[in-house]
Design a protein around this nucleic acid. Structure first.
Lengths: 343, 343
DNA sequence: GCTGGAATCGAAAACGTTTTCGACAGAGAA
DNA sequence: TTCTCTGTCGAAAACGTTTTCGATTCCAGC
């Protein structure tokens, strides 16, 4: 591996001068600088990031923690989608990403922030942090910039990045209204913070529409199974809603499967709209109309947040990125009236 | 940040002795070693990995390249699933993972191996490398250990890690046979290496079963769209197969949707089995029976491969990890005979 | 008592950078 | 001419480790 000394030796100058020339400092002559740059290129010199970090005290590296939420496992882990946005932003700003996970409990018997400290990363992005995480306090009092994505918690010294859940829910609800629905129910996920926000948006909407009824809300836990049982429950009602806003795609798909089993068809008999736009949501039958989280935008925003804090020293409390409605085939206009004849 | 000097100073010993004591060398007294370890703990000393790397010349870091295959985008990128296995393995063996992506073309105007060189990573795992990648030669002649996952290519100095595609296909085919199917077709993906392997397994199976017919094979490109058009084509046949082995889940789901549109039902009228077990494959209606790639195992195997090569210097050509069949609801026994009545 | 070796520790170099400070030359102003 | 200033460069320290080698002590064996 060719070092800065090699360049210095072949040119007969000092290493300090080479370093300054390569780093664009102004106390080196133009002619010499050109020669240094030339031979650096000829020798295919690459500055050693390790040595550089040792002296500059900044690693130009940030830690990303992919936390396994409630044991869903990888296949259901939505978090990977954010990683792509983070990755792009990091590449643009010439930072490296080191990746950690907490699924291996035996190893990470230490706080995420401790890991950051030992790895000397400049900042951290944590995706999927739960409210009952045992290291929650450490995270919220971290001495380095931290961004939280896809998380239940808020507050503290970390910046909270998420979709604008209320706006997203409004998008879905307005779509339903524009289709002519007047009886729209919800399957909420009240235990999570985003879930509560989405529910509140529904509650306001339903109140405005005059269809707020206690028996139009069911509780789920983000799993398809909870969607299926909610479908059973809805299907048994005397006066079924004509549309359901589910707080997540997984639950929305559970609803579809549950209704399917009971013989009520989507979207002919009932419209269903989800939230998230999980992978392959366009492939379940019928293709799910849902409000898509801008996972790329969220990842990028989180990255910009911590890096900006690193540069400027000023932290942002919260960043909301706008989701967008993607209409597919699980919603339709309600049937003329809740008649008695079936066909 | 507390350094090795701090603990040397408080104990009145030299830094070299502290280093040796902490690293378990045998030329330091037991009593002194104990005191050093104690004060290291008291001072919450963490060895600086940067400084350590500078002198040991090993970074204990490996690069992972997530390549965006054929513009599928993140949502369709199967690659993330492997990352989890890699992550676990890396944690166990105390290596750090730095992540790269190639989706940002403007930045990565340099070979992956060049990036490894500049980042001083000890080894690399590349997922999703295509056969026509412009840096293919560089990868296959890399001076560091490299493992290839989910890739079309093989050979060279890299170790190739993948599912045992032939065995996996056999699993699916035998399942179909055990259900009583005698006319099983295939939707292949001949342009890719794994696709060809899966097709060969089908061909052998079909030959053994006596149902090998040219018009029982259709070509797809791994997209759901190609599955849909294949379904059209199959549905138009005078003598339809009773089951189809698709070379990927995406195509299998496309088949289901295509048949659905033509009024042929899965699995009542035709059975369909996929390959991969993509996220949420259990949620499409009907739940897809498929052969699941052991993504965790593959990731772990790739990691072990490069790390073992780093330790021992000996490289493995190819590692095949066994997939497993997961039967869900898209396959059933064939109907008694191709009768004329519909119900 | 002397020699040999083992055990224990410190001094110092090394890794590849960046950065500070001082040296020196030349140019311009007094 | 002398003084000051600017421009250009080198020497050296520093970052926090690891590792080699030499120094010292201690004890067993003769």
């Amino acid at each position: 591996m060719v070092t800065i000394k090699d360049i210095a030796r072949t040119l007969g100058v000092s290493v300090g001068t080479v370093s300054k020339a390569l780093n664009g400092r102004d106390d080196v002559g133009d002619e010499l600088r050109a020669r240094i740059i030339d031979t650096a290129r000829e020798l295919r010199y690459e500055p050693d990031p390790i040595a550089r970090r040792l002296v500059t005290k900044r690693s130009r590296t940030l830690g990303v923690f992919m936390l396994d939420r409630q044991g869903f496992g990888v296949r259901r882990n939505f978090g990977w989608l954010f990683l792509d946005g983070i990755l792009h932003g990091a590449a643009e700003r010439e930072y490296d990403l080191v990746l950690f996970s907490n699924t291996d409990d035996t190893r990470y018997e230490r706080s995420y922030i401790d890991i950051c400290r030992s790895r000397r990363v400049d900042a951290a992005i944590i995706v999927g942090l739960r409210g009952d995480d045992r290291y929650l306090d450490d995270v919220l009092n971290a001495p380095i910039p931290v961004a939280l994505i896809d998380t239940e918690v808020s507050g503290g010294s970390a910046t909270f990045v998420s979709s604008d859940n209320r706006a997203g829910a409004a998008l879905a609800l307005e779509h339903l209204a524009s289709l002519g629905h007047e009886k729209v129910a919800t399957l909420r996920a009240p235990f999570s913070y985003p879930g509560r926000l989405r529910y509140e948006a529904w509650a306001e909407f339903a109140a405005a529409l005059g269809c707020f009824r206690d028996d139009y809300v069911r509780d789920g836990d983000f799993t398809p199974e909870s969607g299926m049982s909610a479908a059973e429950s809805f299907a048994a009602m005397r006066e079924m809603p004509t549309a359901i806003f589910a707080a997540s795609d997984l639950m929305a798909i559970g609803l579809i499967r549950g209704f399917e089993k009971r013989g009520v068809r989507v979207p002919e008999d009932i419209s269903i709209v989800g939230f998230d736009d999980i992978p392959n949501a366009d492939l379940v039958g019928p293709a799910l109309t849902t409000v898509a989280q801008d996972t790329l935008g969220i990842g990028k925003a989180a990255l910009d947040a911590v890096l900006d804090e690193l540069d400027s020293g000023s932290r942002r409390e919260e960043i909301l990125v706008e989701p967008r409605l993607v209409v597919r085939q699980s919603c339709a206009a309600p049937r003329a009236a809740a008649g008695s004849v079936k066909g």
